[in-house]
């Protein structure tokens, strides 16, 4: 199956002002066809106002086994959240 069309990941902007979100993938020979196919597959019911397509093998992803080293350090840094600090009532909204 060496002649299989490459896989593309599809990102759709649902509404003006929102960011593009990953919605799924599809096969297409090139970017132009990927956009055409994405329009047919992922926006048949008014789901989008803009489409991005990225060939799947161009995406690099973090590894699930790195979950600990990558994300655990942030768990102990509660002072990064505004609710960590008590502001006296007299000061008012901040």
């Amino acid at each position: 199956m060496k002649n299989e069309w490459p896989l593309w990941e599809i990102f759709i902007r649902g509404q003006h002002g929102m960011s593009h979100r990953h919605v799924g993938s599809l096969h297409a020979p090139d970017a132009e066809m990927a956009i055409k196919n994405a329009r047919d597959v992922y926006t048949r019911r008014n789901e989008g106002v803009s489409i991005w397509v990225v060939e799947a093998n161009n995406i690099s992803a973090s590894s699930p086994s790195d979950k600990g080293p990558l994300y655990e350090p942030s768990e102990s840094k509660v002072y990064r959240h505004p609710t960590f600090f008590d502001i006296p009532d007299e000061v008012g909204a901040m």
Binding site: M1, E4, G24, L26, R44
Partner: peptide, 27 residues
């Protein structure tokens, strides 16, 4: 026509999900 087109889309979503498990759509 719209319904039958949906079915093609459903097939595509599912083949896409299967492909993440290491099998290709053509296979």
């Amino acid at each position: 026509l719209a319904k039958v087109q949906d079915e093609a889309g459903h097939g595509l979503y599912l083949y896409g999900a299967a492909e993440t498990l290491g099998v290709s759509r053509d296979e």
